[in-house]
């Protein structure tokens, strides 16, 4: 089997997939994704703006939309603002979203997506790059795109330091809850410091009284762990909630000042490209 490619992409998240989609179809491109299925597992609150949708997916239908909300509630201690924002944002099914882009990459561009393939090492050698999989297989490319997500393990292998400072990291915990008190039309942010020190708590409505309910704190602070803080808030504010799924997550910000080196580009969370205010990273992962 020929293991030479024009472009090798590591990471089948929004950044890697969308970058692939944008590459000229005549190129020979392969994406390596360590998970067995694109779009699973999902560690995300799934909020994007309508702008993102318009900018990147103008044509066709959007089978990945879960819910479109129309109201925004922002809380800070005793203060509360309620704003009407019809048509500004939506909650997507991140799993369907990634599968949707992956299908375009496979069917329109005819590129290969190799799942269940963990890349353990990468090297730049003279006129090519080399990546090595967990099983020892080697692949060669003219260009390497690293989009390995928040863990960002590979950039340091090729001389780009992507180690994240604790002050630039948000430690998060999320539960998918079902509760009659969740309003499908309303998205909530709570910036109260005692609720989420150095970060915020979110309630993103998925429809059918379900919500992506989570919080993120600045990782450098000395305080309770996110899962404890979230459980405390839930017991107070949504005492009857049913928890459908729960998971930790981390969001890094402060974009790398240099996202490239000879033959290599770093994209998305791996380049710390998420928005420092909202922690939203999908839009920026598509952009760069």
């Amino acid at each position: 089997m020929d293991k030479n490619y024009d472009v090798i992409i590591v990471g089948g998240g929004p950044a890697g997939l969308y970058a692939a989609y944008k590459i000229e179809k005549s190129f020979k491109v392969i994406i390596f994704e360590k998970d067995d299925v694109i779009g699973e597992p999902i560690l995300c609150a799934e909020g994007i703006s309508t702008n993102t949708l318009k900018l990147f997916f103008k044509d066709g239908d959007h089978p990945f939309i879960r819910n479109i909300y129309s109201k925004l509630k922002v809380k800070y201690k005793d203060l509360e603002a309620n704003i009407d924002i019809p048509g500004r944002g939506l909650i997507i099914d991140r799993s369907k979203f990634e599968k949707y882009i992956a299908n375009k990459v496979k069917e329109e561009n005819n590129f290969e997506i190799k799942t269940g393939s963990f890349v353990v090492d990468a090297k730049v050698e003279n006129d090519h790059v080399k990546v090595i999989l967990e099983n020892g297989e080697e692949y060669f490319g003219k260009i390497l795109i690293i989009a390995d997500g928040v863990e960002s393990y590979l950039p340091n292998k090729v001389g780009i330091n992507s180690v994240c400072n604790l002050v630039d990291m948000y430690s998060c915990y999320q539960q998918i809850i079902h509760d009659p008190n969740v309003k499908d039309e309303e998205i909530i942010f709570d910036f109260t410091p005692s609720v989420a020190p150095g970060g915020y708590l979110w309630v993103f409505p998925r429809g059918n009284n379900e919500a992506n309910f989570g919080l993120g704190i600045t990782s450098s602070l000395d305080c309770e762990k996110p899962y404890k803080l979230l459980n405390e808030y839930r017991e107070k504010n949504y005492p009857n909630a049913k928890i459908l799924r729960e998971f930790p997550g981390c969001v890094s910000v402060n974009q790398l000042s240099r996202m490239y080196t000879d033959r290599v580009m770093v994209l998305g969370d791996s380049a710390r490209a998420a928005d420092p205010i909202t922690g939203g990273g999908i839009d920026n992962a598509l952009r760069r």
Partner: peptide, 17 residues
């Protein structure tokens, strides 16, 4: 979630599947 891998200055944590 990969948080520890991201902040480890020695890059000694690896997150397999």
């Amino acid at each position: 979630c990969g948080g520890c891998v991201a902040v480890c200055p020695a890059k000694v944590i690896i997150m397999y599947k």
